Amino acid sequence: MNSPLHLVLNTTPEQSARLAALQVAFAEVCNALAPVVQETRCWNRVALHHLSYHDLRQRFPQVGSQMVCNAIYSVSRTCRLILQHPNSPFNIGKHPDRPLPLLQFLPSAPVYFDRHTLSLKDGLLSMYTLDGRMRFQLALKGEDELRFHQEKLREIVLSRHFARYQLSFWLAVVDADADEEKPTASEGEMPEYIVVHAAESEEASVIRQAAATLP
């Protein structure tokens, strides 16, 4: 991906509260999905969708169908980074027999949007929240607006920095059929919003359970 375009949102306290509620709910969906990944060893986005979508929709009806899809994407993307990146200490290629860790998404985890949950047209931004659409008027620079026409939009991410919310638009001049399942070199750093709980090996689990029965 090329360099992202960051847009800081000038929010009122009420708008910030709505975005914070969405951020917390999004992390809750991700955390409900993380044990599925650990148990099934599946984090392919399409396969994970088939495994979990209907259950997540029933458990989190307030989040909405498309945001559930975006949460599945977030978990898949994060797992690719933590479990497949060559610099990750949890890389499964280096330890194929090791049980998968459990990922925990903190409330500060970013929220992923797509064209169904966020639109930007003629400087008017419209984005999904738990209680309806939120709109902002944005003044885009000419060169930034040109990027939206010339480059492919790959990701839209909402995050909070120093008590202010910002949207990051990841655009890239790439083949539309490029493989999005491979972690990129720019994804080398472990995200600060993820806590990785290392899984206990089967042998260690047996020893711990046996020790618990001793007088």
Rank of each mutant, 00 (worst) to 15 (best):
V195G: 02
N2Y: 10
A163K: 15
C79T: 06
I207D: 12
S108Y: 06
P13C: 12
R98E: 07
E192C: 14
G93Y: 11
A71N: 05
R57Y: 08
A176Y: 14
R98Y: 08
A185K: 01
H50L: 09
A20P: 01
S88N: 09
E181G: 14
V157R: 15
L83T: 00
Q137F: 03
A20L: 05
V111G: 00
S119R: 15
L51N: 02
Y112I: 15
L130I: 09
A185P: 02
L102N: 09
M190Y: 11
S88V: 01
E151C: 06
L81C: 13
Y128G: 02
D144L: 12
L7V: 14
S16A: 09
V36S: 07
L158M: 06
H95D: 04
V174N: 12
V174P: 02
A172P: 02
D144E: 15
N31W: 05
A47T: 10
R59K: 07
V8C: 05
Q104W: 10
N91K: 05
Y128W: 10
M1K: 11
L124F: 12
L5I: 09
D177Q: 06
M190E: 14
I72P: 00
D97M: 12
N91I: 01
E181A: 15
M134G: 07
L102T: 12
Y73F: 10
V46K: 14
V196A: 00
N70T: 09
T12P: 05
Q38W: 10
Q23E: 07
L48W: 02
R98L: 06
V157P: 07
Q62E: 14
P101C: 03
L103S: 00
V8H: 04
A34D: 02
L171D: 01
A172E: 11
G142M: 12
L120V: 03
D114C: 07
Q38V: 06
S76H: 03
G188T: 10
K182M: 13
S108I: 04
F162S: 12
A17I: 01
H149V: 14
N10K: 10
V196H: 00
I92E: 07
Q84P: 02
L100I: 06
Q166F: 11
T213Y: 05
G142A: 13
T129K: 03
S88L: 04
I92L: 09
Y165P: 00
H49P: 01
T213H: 09
H49K: 04
A139L: 13
G64M: 02
H49N: 04
V8Q: 07
L214M: 10
Y193N: 00
L130H: 03
S119V: 15
L102V: 08
Q209R: 15
R154E: 12
Y53P: 04
V111R: 00
A178Q: 10
M134Q: 13
R147Q: 12
H6E: 14
P4S: 08
Q104I: 07
S74H: 08
A211N: 13
E39P: 02
D122F: 06
Q166A: 12
